[in-house]
Design a protein around this nucleic acid. Structure first.
Lengths: 159, 159
DNA sequence: AAAAATCCAAGTAAAATAATCGGATATTGA
DNA sequence: TCAATATCCGATTATTTTACTTGGATTTTT
């Protein structure tokens, strides 16, 4: 499984949706505006999310998207897989120069690593992210630092 | 941190190197042949790996690359970061439409997720992958199935 | 001196990402 | 019924990233 900005857009959009759907369907136009993602790109992503049964849609005025199940039952892994189609895992399957099979083995290892990563992201749910967000929200209120400093320290903690 | 085929190439190449460096420096030409990655692309990747002090090089005939430290002290996260330059984490830092700060928060969440992932991959070492590989090698010998079946089940286990 | 290797920069082809366009369809409410 | 709001959808395009190519140079060994 790959982890690109495309998956990140999808997770961000789904999170925006999860945080708002209690007030009814959420429009892509709204997500677009709030998250700075183009409407048409969101349409493409949500087409895939819908076909993967992660969201449901209601058309017409007052319509929009809703989570297809509870936020706790939607994982980050599912979102990423949904928007980031397969792209053949093995890549050496069927190739001719693979009978020295050293290559196959390193591929196997990568595949295993992938599986572990997938497993990890399968345990991160949208619901969990929402709770994390709400916890952070209150802590941010108590944060006396100016936004730049807070953002810098948050970024330093990451990759 | 992103997780693309580029990082996968780098990890695969480093694994190939780790599995062979006991017999002296490993040439990129050899890795290229075994792993099916173009020589020049490997040169680019190893330039970055060298500048990030993950490998050392010896020039001239009989030369090649060697791990700069023990395989147990080189992590998959380090390899991926080395070849996959920064690409600014926050992306909203400095943007004008960020004062409703809902966007910043979802970005924060993604950054946190990233950090956890990075932390996870920081615990996967080249040495660990090598041992995993060797364990698999013997088990593969005992696998009575034909290669196609074994490959299919391995692929199914992954993403 | 010749060969084997790393080094390096520039350019290019192919693929993926993100956006754009031009609609079609469904639904709501005035 | 009509207009507005939304999802849907396919095709096209621009941009960026990936992967490779080319044409060297430098270092070291034999």
């Amino acid at each position: 499984m790959r982890l690109t900005t495309k998956g990140r857009f999808a997770v961000t959009a789904m999170l925006d949706l999860a945080l708002r759907e209690s007030r009814g369907p959420v429009t892509l136009a709204g997500i677009s505006e709030r998250q700075g993602i183009s409407l048409s790109y969101l349409e493409q992503l949500f087409g895939k999310l819908r076909r993967n049964a992660l969201v449901t849609s209601t058309r017409g005025p007052g319509g929009g998207y809703t989570l297809a199940r509870e936020a706790d039952d939607i994982t980050v892994a599912q979102i990423i897989i949904a928007v980031d189609e397969p792209v053949d895992a093995t890549q050496c399957a069927g190739r001719e120069n693979c009978h020295d099979n050293h290559r196959c083995m390193t591929h196997d290892l990568w595949t295993d690593l992938n599986a572990t990563l997938f497993n990890y992201l399968s345990n991160v749910t949208l619901g969990g992210l929402v709770r994390q967000h709400k916890a952070k929200e209150t802590s941010v209120i108590h944060d006396k630092r100016v936004p730049e400093q807070a953002a810098a320290s948050a970024a330093a903690g990451a990759a």
